[in-house]
Amino acid sequence: NLYFQGLKYMVPGARVTRGLDWKWRDQDGSPQGEGTVTGELHNGWIDVTWDAGGSNSYRMGAEGKFDLKLAP
């Protein structure tokens, strides 16, 4: 699974964008943008601060869902 392989790169400072299971509307800005991981992966959740200004926790394994992917 590509998403599980990418988890080791989901570290503080990593750049991310919305992924396969995104369901959080425009939390990442409008139009959709990139963000920066600000915390360690914990119980399948990870913290992100978006360039647009907001921050929140997103699923990276929790509930079998992956809200994020590494930015290109």
Results as ranks from 00 to 15, higher is better:
residue 31 P to D: 09
residue 1 N to Y: 10
residue 17 T to M: 14
residue 6 G to I: 15
residue 27 Q to I: 05
residue 12 P to C: 14
residue 72 P to K: 13
residue 46 I to N: 00
residue 28 D to H: 04
residue 42 H to Q: 11
residue 61 G to L: 01
residue 4 F to K: 10
residue 31 P to K: 07
residue 25 R to D: 15
residue 24 W to S: 06
residue 42 H to M: 11
residue 63 E to Q: 12
residue 6 G to V: 15
residue 68 L to I: 10
residue 7 L to F: 10
residue 27 Q to T: 06
residue 28 D to K: 04
residue 56 N to W: 12
residue 17 T to S: 10
residue 64 G to I: 06
residue 28 D to F: 04
residue 59 R to L: 03
residue 49 T to H: 11
residue 17 T to N: 07
residue 42 H to A: 12
residue 22 W to L: 05
residue 13 G to E: 03
residue 20 L to N: 13
residue 22 W to K: 03
residue 69 K to Y: 13
residue 72 P to L: 11
residue 61 G to M: 00
residue 37 V to I: 14
residue 61 G to D: 01
residue 2 L to E: 15
residue 54 G to Y: 10
residue 13 G to Y: 06
residue 68 L to C: 01
residue 16 V to E: 02
residue 65 K to D: 01
residue 9 Y to K: 09
residue 52 A to L: 08
residue 18 R to W: 07
residue 15 R to F: 04
residue 53 G to V: 00
residue 56 N to D: 08
residue 44 G to L: 03
residue 3 Y to T: 12
residue 37 V to L: 07
residue 54 G to V: 11
residue 35 G to V: 03
residue 6 G to S: 14
residue 36 T to H: 03
residue 19 G to V: 06
residue 36 T to W: 07
residue 72 P to N: 15
residue 13 G to Q: 04
residue 16 V to K: 00
residue 13 G to R: 04
residue 10 M to F: 15
residue 26 D to F: 07
residue 17 T to Q: 13
residue 23 K to A: 10
residue 39 G to I: 04
residue 10 M to D: 01
residue 63 E to G: 12
residue 48 V to Y: 02
residue 2 L to D: 15
residue 41 L to H: 07
residue 48 V to H: 00
residue 57 S to G: 06
residue 27 Q to G: 07
residue 5 Q to L: 11
residue 34 E to V: 14
residue 56 N to L: 04
residue 32 Q to K: 10
residue 48 V to I: 07
residue 61 G to S: 05
residue 51 D to P: 00
residue 38 T to R: 08
residue 21 D to L: 03
residue 8 K to I: 14
residue 22 W to Y: 06
residue 31 P to A: 08
residue 66 F to H: 05
residue 49 T to G: 06
residue 36 T to Q: 07
residue 41 L to A: 08
residue 1 N to C: 15
residue 1 N to V: 11
residue 28 D to L: 04
residue 15 R to L: 02
residue 52 A to M: 10
residue 60 M to H: 05
residue 28 D to Q: 05
residue 32 Q to G: 14
residue 49 T to F: 08
residue 33 G to E: 06
residue 24 W to M: 05
residue 70 L to D: 03
residue 39 G to K: 09
residue 52 A to C: 13
residue 33 G to W: 06
residue 19 G to F: 06
residue 17 T to K: 10
residue 51 D to G: 02
residue 72 P to V: 14
residue 47 D to P: 13
residue 42 H to G: 06
residue 16 V to Q: 00
residue 71 A to D: 06
residue 20 L to A: 14
residue 36 T to P: 01
residue 17 T to H: 08
residue 58 Y to S: 00
residue 61 G to E: 02
residue 57 S to M: 11
residue 44 G to K: 00
residue 44 G to E: 02
residue 21 D to Q: 04
residue 26 D to K: 06
residue 59 R to E: 01
residue 67 D to K: 01
residue 41 L to E: 06
residue 70 L to K: 05
residue 47 D to A: 15
residue 44 G to Y: 02
residue 69 K to A: 14
residue 49 T to Y: 09
residue 37 V to Y: 00
residue 8 K to P: 10
residue 31 P to G: 08
residue 51 D to F: 05
residue 14 A to L: 07
residue 4 F to W: 15
residue 56 N to I: 04
residue 1 N to D: 13
residue 3 Y to N: 14
residue 42 H to F: 11
residue 14 A to Q: 09
residue 54 G to T: 10
residue 25 R to I: 10
residue 30 S to K: 13
residue 40 E to N: 12
residue 18 R to N: 02
residue 22 W to E: 04
residue 5 Q to M: 11
